[in-house]
Structures are given as C-alpha cells and as structure tokens.
Nucleic acid binder design. Sequence first.
DNA 1: TCATTATAGTTAGCTAGCTAACTAATTGCA
DNA 2: TGCAATTAGTTAGCTAGCTAACTATAATGA
Lengths: 167, 167
Amino acid sequence: MLQVKELPDAEVLKKFTKRYPDANIEQVLQFLTFLRVASDLSNSLDQFLGSYDLLQGRWWVLLLLMREDDFSSVPSTLAKQAGVSRATMTGLVNGLQRDGLVSRVTDSHDRRQSRVRVTAKGQSKLDEVMPDYYQRLNKLMSVFDKEQGEHFMTLLLALKSQRHIFE
Amino acid sequence: MLQVKELPDAEVLKKFTKRYPDANIEQVLQFLTFLRVASDLSNSLDQFLGSYDLLQGRWWVLLLLMREDDFSSVPSTLAKQAGVSRATMTGLVNGLQRDGLVSRVTDSHDRRQSRVRVTAKGQSKLDEVMPDYYQRLNKLMSVFDKEQGEHFMTLLLALKSQRHIFE
DNA sequence: TCATTATAGTTAGCTAGCTAACTAATTGCA
DNA sequence: TGCAATTAGTTAGCTAGCTAACTATAATGA
C-alpha cells in the first residue's frame, strides 16, 4: 500500500504541472491524502493487533470463522471471503495453526476439502482483542457526528463506483 | 492492507454485537468501507502501473527523483520521503537499476553515501505513464464536485488526526 | 588524538500478498 | 462406464514490506 510520507508541496506540484499539463493539483492531493490516511490507519490497526500477536490477515480469518455457527469453514471459502488467493489462505491457516488458534479437521465427505476450526484458544484470543478494538474504533469514529458519518459513506461509495477507471 | 470482500451482513453483526456489546454497527461499516475502498483503489492503481511494468514502490521512487533539480538523491533520504525502511529502499533501487530506470553513482564526498539518479529511460518511462495517470485520476475524482472534494478532504484530515487511537 | 557514537548501505530472515504449476479427488458428460 | 474438466489444497518462486545485525565511514568529545 502506498505510503508516501512527503506529499508534494506547491513548488513540486508546479514543476510537475509544467511537465505534465493534465495534472490537477487539488485532485492529486485528495487522492494521495485518501490513500495515505487509509494506509496510516491500516498500519495503526496492525500495530494494535500486533500487541495481541495478531495481524490483519490472521485476525480476519478468526473473525470469519467466528461468524459460523460451528466456528469452522473451509479454506477456499475463507479465501473468497477474505479476498485473498487460496495459496495465501494456506499460509495464514498454517500460521494460525502453529500458534494453536485454529485446527485443521480432515473429517469430510469431500476428501479434497479440509475444515478449519477456531480453537478455544482462538476464541479467547478474540474475546481479548475485540472489546478493546470496538472501544478504540468507537473513539476513532466519534470524530464524525451522525451526519458527517453518513456523508463520509456516501462519498466513499461514489469513489468506489469509479474504481474501474484505473483498470 | 485489509482486503475483506464480504463485509459483515446484518445477521452477523447482530451475532457479534451480542458477544461484544461495545460494537457499534454504523461505525464498523464506515471504518471497514473506508479501508476497503482505499485498498481496492490502491490495487487498481497497481494494476494500472503494472501495465507499464511499474508498481507503486518503484513509481514513487522515480517521482521522488524527478522532483530534484539534478534528478538524483541518496537512498536514505528517499527512504524517509517514501516512508519505507532503508532496507526496503535498497530493494526498490536494485529493481529499478536492474530495469535500467535508475543508476547508482558513487561520486560523493561522504563515502558512506551513494547517489541514485533517474536515467533517460526512467524519465521517458514516467513521461509515458504520467499523462495517462493524470487523465484517469481526473476522471476518477470528477465524481466529486468542488464542494464535495473539499468536504472529503476535511473528513479525511479529521480521521487522520485520530490515528493515534490504535497505537 | 583516538575511542565512542552515529550514520549509510547492505544482507539475512521474517510476514503476507501474488501467479503458476502440481496432486488428488470429484463431477459431468458422451 | 470411463475419460475430461473442474475443484481443493499445497508448493515454489516472485514482489514488497519489516527488523536486526553487519561493515564501512564520519563525527564527536574527553
């Protein structure tokens, strides 16, 4: 993820505008600020999760498993839900298994599949993390009042609808 | 970067709210949507840059070098500006050098330092990419009118000011 | 002066993403 | 029925981050 600390200043932008006349300074700053704030927050979240020996990838796998009634799922489904490749999911599950947070169960009618289940240790890990997470999230998002929060969502969804433009 | 495809639906959120009473559904959705739209756009940008054999890391190094009057800088400065470690910068410069987009110049009074300079090939690479980039960025950000764009920035900066909460 | 401290760059080894290629198992259809 | 196509999971090898440790050089201060 983009992580530029020094956004271009006025002088630099002027230089670039000269070389590349299509540049629109406001738009560039809005876009870069958007990516930058998001990556800063994402890194902060990782730092927070790191204090519980988790990172976003592993944390999400645990959360996806907790959604299920029997606290278990299959890797390919998890991969789709998490938006990562099956290969990546193999790695995430390996790490979680090594730490004792999930277990692999081969009990299945389809012998290509394996099931992944959150262990008791995995559940108590989440029970430690989540209250702290929700309290911090509450503080964070309280910078917006109700109207601002809704407007923020509207703007985000408008931007999202245009993501094909870079493809 | 967080990349969850399936944001929690109402039923799942209800289940979580039961287990973790501090959860505030609107806030969770706003936060996750924010990270998700940003990571989608970041991935789209990478796809776009990939069509020019670049990725964000390398692209930013080239841009940082183009800011300089003599098109050159030193790795440690580049690392600070790009917000990556010196080790990561070594790797980025290696890749760029292998592709002939930058060169390393050891000409220096401080023999610990080396200078990195954009080559003519690197400059023409950017001259290919940037007009296309600015045109697409223009289309993307045109979903916002002037007022919306300014409001978006205000909201982003408010959120940014709270990033310490997860640390 | 010269020993300590700080800085620059690299290397090694980690996480976490990717694609492509592989094995095993299942499904589907001629 | 049996072969082809599909699916599930893993592995190998890539990019791009990180920290920690290392070498070389420069700066500092007793």
